[in-house]
Every structure is written in C-alpha cells, then in structure tokens.
Design a protein around this nucleic acid. Structure first.
Lengths: 326, 326
DNA sequence: TTGAAAGCGCTAACAG
DNA sequence: CTGTTAGCGCTTTCAA
C-alpha cells in the first residue's frame, strides 16, 4: 500500500504539497498540482483514513442506535443515512437489541472519537446514564424527554394532535367506543395519547375505557391478545386505535383470520403511514417520518459544523383514510 | 480528553505498561495492573480508536452495501450486524440507492482501511469494477456470480430448488397455468427460476407462458401492472408466482382492492417468508434469510482472522402454505 | 517485569 | 508557492 510519501517521491515534491493538493488547502501552483495528481493516479493512491482521523481529531462518521430494526425505524434510519451522506458524513448503525451494555459500548464510541455524533432512535438505558456522554459529542433522539434535567435535543413530534385527529374523525363517522392500544408506558408518546383520549372523552361526555390492559404493545405479535381483551369488554368497542402501523397490522391479520369485517364490525386505525398500511389497506396517520430522520441529521450536523445551518423542517399530521374505517 | 500518557502519569508507570494492561498483552505484575486500572477508572479514560486503528492497521469494522433497504434486505442486514457484533466487529451500513459512484466511494473505504471487509447485498457496478478491490480486503456477496473470471465469494442459495418446490405443490393441487413474476433479468436468481419453470413445463408437457412481460419487477408497486397483464392473457392463468414477498404483497393488495378471491379465483405464492407474508397470510417459501446474513459475516471473518473458523450453515427451502393457495 | 523510543500516515504551523 | 518538521495517541520492539 502506498503512502503520502510515495506520492511525494513520485511527484518530486514534499508530503506537505501532496496533502495540500488532496485537501485543496493552501497554495499550490497549477503545474505541481498536476504532477501530484498524476502521481496519485499512477499509484492508484487513497489516503489512509485512520491517519487522517487521528490527525484531524474527528471522523465524519455518525452513529445510529436503536433497540430494534422493525417497523418505521428503518425508514427513519434510511432518511438519516441519506441526509448524512449528502453532507459527506458516513454512518454506523447499531442494534442494541434492547441490551443496556451494548448501548453503553456505542456511547463509548462517541467518547473514543470513533463517532462524531449519535442519533438515538430507541434507547435501553435511562437518560441519566446517557446524558454524561453529551460532553464527548452531540446526541439527538427521536423522543421527547420529559425529565427537566436532561438536555438532549430531540426531533419529537407531539402525538396529541395526531391522536385527536383520529378520534374526531371516528366520532364524526358514528364510532363512539374506542380502544387504545398503546406502546411503552414510560414513553411520552403513550402519555400524550392517553391525555388526548381522556380530554376527548371529557369533551364528549363519554366514559373512558380502562387503559391498563392495552399498555406496552410494541409489535405485530399482539394481535391475538388485543382481540381477546376486546371480546371480553362490555359494551363492545366499535373502534381500535393502534399506536403504530406495525401493531395495527398484527391486529388486522388476526381479524382477517377470524373473519371479522372491517369497517362494519369494527374500525381500526394505525399510525405512521408505513408501506404496510397501504398493502393491507388500512387507515392511518402520516407525518413524514422521513423528515424526522433528516431533522435528526440536521441537528447533529449543525452542532458539528457551526459554520453552516440546516433548517429543521416542521412536521405535520395528516389522516390517511382507507378501508378499515367509515 | 485524557490520553494514555495521563494514565501513565497518574499510575506512575510508562505508557507501554498502560497499553499492556489495556490489551492484556505481555507481562504486568498484578500490583501495577491494579494501579493502572484504578487510574483508568479515576480519569474515566477510553483509548482513542483512531490511534489504535492507525497503529494496528485495521479497524474491526465491516461494511454493508445495498442498493435498497426494502424487503428482505433489512433482515439480512440485521443478522449480519448481530453476528459481526458478537465477533467484536462493528459495521457501517451504506445505501447506494443504485448509484454507481456512491458504491465506488464505499469500495474506496476498503482501500483506505476504513473497512476491514465488505458485504455486498445488491450492487450497482459491474463485477469487473468491483473485483480489483479484493486486494484491499475480503468481499462477500449475496449473489452467485456466473462470470468465471470473478473470484468473489457468495452466500448464494440456488432458487431452482425452491421454485420447483412451489410448482410441484401447485400442480398437485390442481393448478396448471402459471405466471412467473421475476426480478432483474441479469440476476442469476431470475435465470434459475426461468430454468426451473421451463424444465417443469417440459416434464408436464405444458406450453410455457411468455416470460418477457413479467421481467424486472422488484418491489410492491408492480401489483397493478401484473394484474392488467394477467387480465389480457388467454387462457387465464390460475396461479401467480412472485419472486419475493414484497412483490407478492403488492399483487395481493391489488387483488384485494379488486375483490378477486384467493385461492378460488387465483392462487398466489411469494418468496422469502417475510413478516408481511404472515400478516397478509399468503403462501411463501422460507430459507432462513437470517442464516444467509450470518454466513456472509462468517466468510468475511474467516478471512480476516485465519486463526479461527466459523462453519457455514447450509440453507434449505421450506414451503409455508397459507391462505392464497389450495 | 518494566521503560524508552520508534513510528503507523497524515495535517498544519512555520520558515523560507 | 513549497519544504521541514512536530506531533495526533497508540502499540510494540528492544534493552535493561
């Protein structure tokens, strides 16, 4: 493998000049530049990235960490990667599988300078474990953090509005008894959905259903469980609102297997407007999940390179009506 | 940020000793080791990975490149990442979006030592562009390569058998006229499927349908197109075999929207046994796509560290019958 | 068992 | 405009 010294020798210049040519820095005469470029081409030379990194003190490499790669996560990841790449940053994707120690390893990569910044999609550790790593590099998360002491920026979108949008539309179309299938009880999304639900019930003067049994349902495998819970309820709910398209898809798959008709016997609504919602033709809420991934990249990049500023794109909800609701 | 020198000073030893402690190499007395470890903990020290990389000449980082992150790709990626991580390697995921120049950039990372090895899932360049990079590090691909001159190892599984399995089962259940929805015409998977189909037709003495119009369908968006082609055919086919679950899902979504009944009016079979096939309840073929991702990691790792040897796991096909075939 | 010192390949300050 | 050189933080040889 050739080094910068080989190029310098071949082109009859100093290593500094070669470096200048490669980085377009400082003054180099057109002629010397040509010589150097010829030498680089001739030896088919590529600079050693580790030496550059060590010398420069950064990597132009951003980390992404999540506890799972299912559902909408992959869309977020993809848009983040694309944006970062456009800005000339590489990315490393890590899946902690919800193991706290793996996540800490990744956080340590920030400390060891292997990562210039980190995008936390889903986390396995408490925020107070994560926050100290802020001093080693910028961190951004998908979640809103409702602990006041924590200063990690977020591309969070408040689910309250999106949820209200669903409830209003269902109500308008004659549905009056809703079941809320919810995600992790400690997540703010869950809390905001519950608030939206309770507020709505208060306004419409209806008695809210018990929320407890439908908590912490995070993937498509909960279909059966949801339906058996619903079957026991009295009076029977006429609409199920799921916290994600992934969960909704599992419920619908089960409904189909049981021969229960939508929207006649039951309405069902997902969340995220993922491909699966189109394929299975169910009602859902869109909010440009891709833009969320890009915003995360923008926040990181803005901190890494103070000279430039990417403007964040505000996110908005839109109800996508399909065959599972009237 | 602290360096190895700070630790050395704090522990009253030389940097060499600190290095020995960190890497568990050479002799260090139990006592000095304790001192050093105490110092490391006290200063909350993490070694600079770039310096290590530069010095050692490798990174323990594997690259993954694909042209898309849809469908089964993500399962392969995830299993590859998990396996690599277990073997103490990190991974960087790149999405070329089918752009040749982006792919070349990634190949250059192999050259610049940023990547120790590369897993090519789908490629944008011709093999003869890619092959020269073999001298900079091991490469493995998902595809079989049928150009003799190319020496890139592969975790390919021959689709011929899987395809025959589908055809035999359909035949046994009374289907006699098949449409083949196929992927990229230059891919070997497509070729092998066509061979399987033609062989089968010859054996059963039936006239094969025209293959041309159903070529190069690679994602779920082809549903409508397939159905309009099928509608024009005479006699009408009674079964559609898709090259992937992704494509099958698009066709089924369209069939559902049109109210066409499966398996009565039409049978449909996917390929890959992805989650979507469970959710939409259609027949498909399983072959442990995860193991394919792991095998890719195994091949790379075996070349990177000659001392150890991960055994490759052979892949087998299994027909998963669901509601879209008799 | 430990330390001194060379050097991985590069960038950038400084001198000319 | 170009060259010399220090040094990024680490591992490893060699000598003690």
């Amino acid at each position: 493998m050739y080094t910068i010294r080989d190029i310098a020798k071949t082109a009859n210049v100093s290593v500094a000049t070669v470096s200048r040519v490669m980085n377009n820095s400082g003054y180099v005469s057109t002629e010397t530049r040509k010589d150097v470029e010829k030498a680089i081409k001739k030896l088919n030379y590529t600079p050693n990235r580790h030496a550059q990194n060590l010398r420069r003190g950064d990597t132009h490499n951003l980390g992404i960490i999540t506890t799972t790669l299912t559902g909408s996560v992959i869309d977020i990841v993809e848009s983040f990667i694309d944006f970062a790449h456009q800005a000339n940053y590489t990315t490393s994707l890590f899946n902690s599988s919800n193991k706290a120690n793996i996540e800490v390893e990744v956080l340590n990569r920030l400390k060891s300078k292997e990562l210039d910044g980190l995008f936390i999609i889903y986390r396995a550790n408490d925020w107070d474990i994560i926050e100290p790593y802020l001093k080693y590099g910028p961190i951004v998360t998908l979640h809103y953090i409702d602990e006041e002491a924590i200063n990690i920026p977020s591309v969070y979108i408040d689910h309250y509005q999106g949820y209200r949008m669903i409830l209003e539309d269902l109500w308008k179309n004659g549905y009056h008894s809703f079941v809320n299938v919810l995600g992790s009880p400690r997540g703010l999304n869950t809390k905001r959905r519950i608030e939206a639900y309770l507020d709505f019930c208060a306004e419409k003067k209806i008695i809210p259903h018990d929320i407890e049994p439908f908590l912490d349902m995070t993937d498509h495998s909960y279909g059966k469980q949801v339906l058996s819970l619903v079957a026991q309820m009295n009076p029977k709910p006429d609409a199920i609102i799921a916290n994600s398209d992934l969960v909704a898809s599992g419920i619908i798959a089960e409904l189909n297997r049981k021969g229960i008709k939508m929207p006649e016997d039951l309405a069902i609504v997902g969340f995220d407007n993922q491909k699966i919602s189109y394929l299975m033709n169910f009602t859902t809420v869109d909010y440009s999940i891709q833009e969320q991934g890009k915003n995360a990249a923008r926040i990181l990049l803005n901190q890494l390179d103070k000279k430039q500023h990417y403007k964040l794109v505000p996110l908005e909800f839109e109800l996508i009506k399909r065959s599972t609701t009237k």
